[in-house]
Design a protein around this nucleic acid. Structure first.
Length: 872
RNA sequence: GGGAGCUUAGCUCAGCUGGGAGAGCGUCUGCCUUACAAGCAGAAUGUCACAGGUUCGAGCCCUGUAGUUCCCACCA
């Protein structure tokens, strides 16, 4: 069993080996087991184009912690992995790569492009998966899925057709968000609004058959080409007479009506609005109300259409410039103001979106939103932290129909077919069909579906739906969904209504929301800033365990956190600490030593550590139950470092050196608690705990499938804990005193312990020698303390004869300081206990505890005074 | 214009249902004590943003104020 282990833990030599061991042992694989309770997490599928970033690292870490914990708790645990085809993002990347080769989509044609895209998927889809493995993610890779694989595609078609037949999907002409760069429509969720500096151009339109002008202001003069009206508020006295009149559109010289509409705010600007139904969502609505013509002035790439020869082919911004110049030349420009306004941008490429009227497919949201709202209201699914349900409700309560068609090729092609001959449309599962009316071959809709349409089905499509599979039966609804608050709209909401609509049940019971990992200055990590930290580099430098531990530490659910290198270092140091603790144990362990059972006659310090460990196991489970991973990890850190390493290991050293039964017991307890700690820590630091486990236990078992420690009433020794704390208090006090006097540990001195509880302190003799530099310990019920340093605790006085060092004045000052502290305690406690309100209203238990504290403080005070008077 | 979060030690952050303020890093002192100097033993440091309120008792609950970050929203 004795093994030569390096002083420093080297994660790089361990992690890949251990991961392979887990994979070979099929430990991640889960098959439905009716004897066990299921626990399932579906991974938020990373994009195939993606590289692992800190956001993934956090997300995967949290999921793996939960999964590993539940697995050890005996659940049939499935973490289902996969990737997302990320329609627009991927297509943009492929197009970009092709551009560098001088090829366009159109040249390649749809089929050729798709071939290339699948090739891309094959090449890069695996990369992110390999990166996830580096983190230690215990996903069931046998079930890895892809949003465009056969099963998911089948589910997509099934849902589309079902919705269509139920009237939940319709095709229609609406104003939608259009990205001129990606050349596709976008849903409302895919538009990000940002403030942009712009201008406010005041224009005047001539009123027909009059000398008068109507002044209005606009931020987008170029859309004037498509104006079909001018609107004022019906109650605006200034313009009352003009409603129904006609004005002349400058430049175009088209005659357009003045209409009255409530949409116009008379307080804003001049109270007159130009109406461009084709290029503004509000204007579109106004246009509908007043039956105005819709004049499209822009091509798909936001250049001006050929109908306006002067501007044809000009980009919208160039056209704006030209039109402003022309307006000025025509005398229609009154003034130009600086103006900052909110414009929508494409969430993928950042291009300013262009509102555009076009024919698209939509999902009718109202009937789907309602059950999704109810499911969270009645607690079937809950958010952690709870406050995120507000965002959820707000979004769903104000939701508009979901534009799901995209004018790109990479994705699920819409299963609708058109007859060019008679105009008939059919929605079908088949890949080709003939017109049911005229028998001619039909043409499939060239559009594809929003990428989120398929990810909305992820919690059940990956389990086999629409087939009735054993997996689906067993694992659905899944349990916890772990994701960042930034994709609640995109994904969580859509999974919720999709699950409810198609499965009749919510997709998961809990949504654990986490925040963003920011850089050290608190900025969002982004490609453009170049401030991103590569998790793989961190893993290479410090190990995956250190990164995971850092990400889980000091982070409350839903809150953003900063990546600070020192924090990873601290985690790495912690791993090293654990490593060395195990090294200490193993170095001292006799050949063939087994520690299956705790010894019968535990010493007080053994009971102390066992009892404290028992409490730790209880609390870690409780914290994990409540998704307080950060709290759990902090408790583990404190216990392992402070309680186990700094105290218990030190306590065992004199025993091990002395040998005999006490040494053996110490070793048994050391191993027992170490094994327990490793198990508790395993979900957080899977690699190092597995590595140590295998070296320490060496029986061919894997820690990742051990039982997770739970609270055991029979191992709770609160009285012994309290007794041992008295010894600890003495050691602390003596160290403190020696420290203040700058006495090095190498200078030993006798220690006199004056106490009424000799039995307690007899158990501490060897610890005072070892940990408090006592050359000899003399326990007595009275000691005069002449020429000694005095240390007072509430159960004893300790005297250290350091006559050559003792300075009576200094010693008096030290004791006076102590006394002042205790006096403060006494004042505080007696004040509280003299408060009638406290006595009559506080819980009895608390009052009793405070009385006890006061009693102890008073005892301590008496001892200090005794020592002080002896000094004179 | 709505909504949410944050404000705690020099820095980064914890703080569970209200019961005398914590950690890591940094600083200072002393230690190479045979697991670990990526370590050990100690020390110092806080009007818990501000102002009210509820309570026997408030970092925690309520109201308001300020600063800050973010989300949502069609003001041309």
């Amino acid at each position: 069993m004795k093994k030569e282990l390096s002083k420093l833990y080297d994660p790089s030599s361990v992690e890949d080996k251990i991961y392979k061991y887990w994979m070979d042992g099929k430990f991640f694989h889960a098959d439905p087991d009716p004897k066990k309770e299921p626990y399932c997490i579906v991974i938020p599928p990373p994009n195939i184009t993606g590289q692992l970033h800190m956001g993934h690292a956090l997300d995967e870490t949290l999921q793996d912690i939960l999964i590993r914990w539940k697995r050890m708790r005996g659940y049939c645990t499935l973490w289902l992995p996969g990737t997302d085809h990320a329609a627009i993002a991927t297509e943009a990347k492929i197009v970009e790569a092709m551009r560098k080769e001088g090829i366009t989509k159109e040249e390649l044609g749809r089929e050729g492009f798709m071939e290339r895209a699948w090739e891309w998927k094959k090449q890069y889809g695996g990369r992110i998966v390999e990166q996830l493995k580096k983190l230690g993610s215990s996903c069931d890779w046998d079930r890895e899925r892809f949003t465009m694989d056969e099963g998911c595609s089948k589910a997509v078609k099934e849902v589309f057709i079902k919705y269509y037949e139920k009237g939940l999907i319709y095709r229609g002409e609406r104003i939608i968000n259009w990205c001129p760069k990606c050349k596709t429509s976008l849903s409302d969720a895919e538009v990000t609004y940002e403030d942009q500096a712009g201008h406010f151009w005041h224009l005047r339109y001539k009123i027909k058959d009059s000398d008068g002008y109507l002044e209005l202001a606009t931020t987008r003069p170029e859309t004037l080409l498509g104006d079909t009206a001018v609107a004022v508020n019906p109650n605006d006295e200034r313009y009352k007479d003009l409603v129904g009149k006609t004005v002349i559109l400058p430049i175009v010289h088209r005659e357009i009506p003045v209409v009255a509409d409530d949409y116009v705010d008379p307080e804003f600007g001049t109270g007159v609005v130009k109406i461009t139904p084709a290029h503004d969502p509000n204007d579109f609505e106004v246009g509908l109300r007043h039956k105005l013509p819709v004049i499209n002035v822009m091509n798909d790439d936001a250049t001006i259409v050929d109908d306006y020869p002067k501007y044809a082919g000009m980009d919208r911004y160039d056209a704006r410039k030209a039109i402003v110049e022309d307006l000025e030349a025509e005398g229609a420009l009154v003034k130009t103001e600086d103006y900052s306004h909110n414009v929508g941008t494409c969430y993928r490429c950042g291009t300013t979106v262009e509102p555009k009227v076009s024919t698209q497919w939509f999902v009718k949201m109202e009937p789907l939103a309602k059950p999704a709202i109810d499911a969270v209201k009645n607690g079937e699914t809950k958010f952690v932290p709870e406050r995120f349900d507000k965002i959820y409700f707000h979004w769903l309560e104000n939701i508009r129909d979901w534009c799901i068609s995209r004018q790109i090729w990479w994705g699920h092609q819409i299963p609708a077919f058109y007859c060019d001959d008679c105009g008939e449309m059919t929605v079908t599962k088949e890949t080709s069909c003939t017109c049911p009316k005229c028998g001619k071959p039909m043409r499939q809709d060239p559009d594809t579906l929003d990428t989120w349409f398929s990810s909305a089905l992820w919690p059940f499509s990956t389990l086999g739906w629409p087939d009735k599979t054993e997996d689906l039966e067993y694992f659905y609804p899944t349990n916890t969904l772990v994701t960042g608050y930034d994709i609640i709209f995109f994904w969580v909401i859509r999974m919720m209504f999709s699950g409810l609509e198609n499965m009749g049940k919510v997709p998961f019971d809990t949504v654990l929301i986490h925040g963003l990992v920011r850089d050290a200055q608190g900025r969002k990590m982004s490609k453009s800033l170049g401030n991103g930290i590569d998790p793989l580099e961190v893993i290479a430098n410090y190990g995956a365990d250190a990164l995971r531990f850092m990400l889980a530490t000091g982070n409350a659910p839903g809150n953003d956190m900063r990546y600070i290198d020192e924090k990873v270092k601290a985690s790495r140091n912690f791993a090293n600490k654990l490593w060395n603790a195990s090294r200490f144990i193993m170095m001292n362990l006799p050949e063939g030593f087994s520690a299956d059972k705790l010894p019968e006659n535990l010493s007080v310090e053994d009971k102390w550590i066992v009892s404290k460990f028992n409490t730790l196991a209880k609390e870690v489970n409780e914290n994990l139950e409540k998704f307080e991973l950060g709290v759990a990890v902090a408790k583990l850190y404190d216990f392992i470092w402070d309680v186990y390493c700094d105290w218990y290991i030190e306590l065992t050293k004199p025993r091990i050196q002395a040998g005999g039964e006490s040494a053996e017991n110490a070793q048994t307890v050391l191993v027992y608690v170490m094994k327990g700690m490793l198990k508790l820590l395993h979900p957080f630091m899977p690699f190092i705990t597995e590595e140590i486990w295998q070296a320490l236990v060496d029986d061919g078992t894997a820690i990742m499938v051990q039982d997770f420690p739970m609270y055991d009433e029979s191992l709770s020794f609160t009285e012994d804990e309290a007794v041992f704390e008295k010894i600890i208090a003495g050691i602390r006090g003596i160290r403190n005193c020696r420290g203040e006097m700058n006495v090095p540990p190498s200078v030993k001195a006798k220690l006199y312990v004056e106490t009424q509880e000799p039995l307690v302190f007899e158990q501490g003799t060897m610890f005072f020698e070892r940990l408090a530099s006592a050359s000899e310990v003399i326990i007595t019920n009275h000691f005069d303390g002449k020429d000694c340093q005095t240390v007072v605790t509430d159960s004893a006085r300790f005297f250290i004869p350091l006559s050559e060092i003792v300075d009576t004045d200094k010693e008096r000052a030290r004791l006076e300081k102590d006394k002042a502290k205790v006096q403060k305690d006494i004042d505080f406690l007696s004040g509280k206990l003299n408060n009638q309100g406290f006595i009559s209203k506080a819980p009895e238990k608390l009052i009793e505890a405070e009385r006890e504290k006061l009693r102890k403080a008073e005892e301590k005070m008496a001892k200090i005074e005794k020592s002080l008077s002896a000094l004179k």
